[in-house]
Design a protein around this nucleic acid. Structure first.
Lengths: 163, 163
DNA sequence: TATTGTTATACTCTATAACTATA
DNA sequence: TATAGTTATAGAGTATAACAATA
């Protein structure tokens, strides 16, 4: 069935009986599509002087609602120690500032600068760039959205805790 | 529009007019789903004593059609130098053997062992594991397959050369 | 004593460049 | 000279453990 997923035969015969082959096929395709998306985003981020990880970190930092590093780590689903390096790079690039929280001097609040705000807007643009979906009609897109929505609701929408 | 993708509101109102919002929404969901799939696969591979990269390498090695390392690198879309380390691990685990090609003694053919054959079967199972799609009916699955197929045809099915 | 951010360290993944042994 | 595999090295990404400052 995996071989089928790798072939170039179009899905003209849905073969509704073979549920697991069907599902495995879809899994393979989604993997391919996501990989292509990551690749494309990676090159776009590089043009902004960002790596995928720093871009994602910037993306998660709301300019209107500064977070402590601890919370950013949680949103990113990674360890606090990684956030240090990520924010180091963002700060070096002038996109983010660390500010000691006067209320709790252990915490450092991550504030997006004006430049950071602009770069972040571009990052968000790239992250929802849908050129890969250009081949679908608007109706197909709507159907696809319904289906992927249903999948991510039933599965692991955020950090995949249901494993 | 990205905020919409992050919300928990179901897509009951398709809003067919907003094509780019629709598409960005789908991109975000596909990213989430693929991330969850990678996470799940990673833990399954770990139980087999494999990393995602070694699992993928093993997956690409057809036991009935041994490849030289050069070809594996091409299939994996990575540099030859990486294949050395990957095959080192697979060989250490007793899953693959290197054999010098008598016809061209520069080449080393990668042969999957009997154990490797069994582990690879499990890897293939994990890679097409579709528990995340359990919430879809077989009909929805068929529709989804048609759509993702169409996307990967129009976009970057394999190593994304069309960038 | 518990928590925040940091540092030190290690492992995976990937890329480039230089080396070797063949061809 | 060109190619296959290897080695050395580097950087990104992520994890754990230990530490300083603060609560």
């Amino acid at each position: 069935m995996w071989d089928m997923a790798q072939s170039t035969v179009p899905p003209t015969g849905p073969e509704l009986g073979d549920r697991s082959g069907l599902a495995g096929d879809v899994v393979g395709r989604i993997t391919h599509i996501a990989s292509a998306m990551r690749h494309h985003q990676g090159t776009e981020f590089a043009e902004l002087g960002l790596t995928p990880a720093t871009a994602r970190a910037l993306h998660e930092l709301d300019p209107d609602c500064p977070l402590p590093a601890r919370d950013l780590a949680e949103v990113l689903g990674c360890d606090r120690s990684n956030v240090t390096a990520l924010v180091d790079k963002l700060e070096q690039a002038g996109l983010v500032e660390r500010r000691v929280d006067p209320a709790d001097r252990r915490q450092k609040t991550l504030v997006v600068t004006e430049t950071g705000r602009q770069v972040r807007a571009r990052v968000r643009q790239v992250m929802s760039d849908s050129r890969l979906l250009a081949g679908l009609s608007t109706e197909e897109l709507a159907t696809l959205r319904e289906l992927v929505w249903k999948v991510s609701d039933g599965g692991c929408p955020e950090q995949c805790e249901t494993d």
